[in-house]
Design a protein around this nucleic acid. Structure first.
Lengths: 207, 207
DNA sequence: ACCTGAACACCGTTCAAGT
DNA sequence: ACCTGAACACCGTTCAAGT
């Protein structure tokens, strides 16, 4: 019994020694965010739950802010995967773009604390977290791509697709944020409200 | 000299004794937020800058969260004043509603940290801060009123005005949030982007 | 290279004591 | 009623020391 425990412990140690600690910290941090909110993520609690000492995280992250930026970056990457999955469906190009919007809102509502963290870094800090900025831009770019497809099919108004993407991002981000913050008592289904909102958006961007 | 200083000090004391401390704390907190960001607002620094002891704020606020909720509430009230001023202008009812949207976005961009604080309380905490929830709802209600005016003039689609207000709020809140967080490199003027975005919104809500 | 325990500065909050 | 200083528990971060 005792020997087994010792063996397991040393195996764990070995793992972190070889570069898994960074990924392990990000995973555990994401779990803590989902379970107990952003306030529950202290470096001390995170270290303990990951099985390392308090100062071990500093080998992989300069400080807590950089670690949280990395967690946020993971969130943008997961969101991008959801959006790309919708983008590659069959069917009408305009309907597909609307479905991207609905998927965006659903991701945010299903991961409220993580989504909030993704947007919690101030403008001035963007230069300090280039990976985070790039992951956010990749999400934005997927909206631009969807808009360009609609424009090419003559289903959306002409003009710089980025300008239209600003409007689209503002709409879905705004609705998601208001729902997460509890400012809107979601009248019935979230999906219904998301469908209605994205429908109004499409009419505002119509050709 | 010494007597003057003593006199001034006792005058200050007198003031806080008679119920101004609450208002003074809210004012100083708002200043600190604008000058040094939300992280600069510690109860200890706030107390010192207001000229009272560390624990004095607890006579007026149960804890830091309640104090910040009161600061946020003040923000909603100031925003509401801006929106009402636009609402009472002369001119086309639809143009006026668009101007409300632009004014909303400008308020947020001019008071970025304060605006962020206004939306930083989670859904679950709304019951704990009824004044904050009411002030937020008053802003929402002003949008509903503006929409009803447009509907009455036959300039906006029929249906529950609250549903349309959700879309409008999501659009302006989303654009404001993305600008504050630095996700959008505002292409040129903020006012121009706000005008374009609200124009697309109006077309999405058109009769 | 990576990990550790001890220590430092800072914070929110409580409480017995003052007026 | 309102205010105060001292004390407690907790946190992010640093650093000399280990392997």
């Amino acid at each position: 019994m005792l020997r087994d425990n010792e063996s397991m412990a040393s195996t764990k140690r070995e793992t972190y020694h070889h570069g898994d600690l960074r990924a392990a910290l990000l995973d555990v941090a994401a779990e803590m965010i989902a379970a107990g909110g952003i306030e529950s993520v202290t470096l001390r609690a995170l270290s303990e739950r990951t099985g390392v000492s308090r100062t071990a995280p500093y080998r992989h992250f300069a400080d807590k802010s950089v670690l949280l930026a990395a967690v946020a970056e993971e969130g943008f990457k997961r969101l991008l995967q959801h959006l790309r999955a919708v983008e590659q469906r069959e069917g009408d190009v305009l309907t597909r773009f609307q479905q991207m919007g609905v998927a965006y809102i659903q991701f945010a509502v299903e991961n409220p604390t993580h989504y909030r963290l993704m947007f919690s870094h101030e403008r001035a800090q963007h230069d300090a977290h280039p990976g985070l900025a790039a992951a956010g831009k990749a999400v934005f770019d997927s909206l631009v791509t969807g808009i360009q497809a609609c424009q090419a099919a003559g289903r959306m108004r002409a003009g710089d697709p980025r300008g239209l993407a600003y409007v689209a991002w503002a709409t879905v981000h705004g609705l998601a944020s208001l729902l997460i913050d509890g400012q809107l008592r979601a009248p019935g289904d979230v999906g219904e409200l998301a469908a209605f909102t994205t429908q109004r958006l499409l009419e505002g961007l119509a050709a």
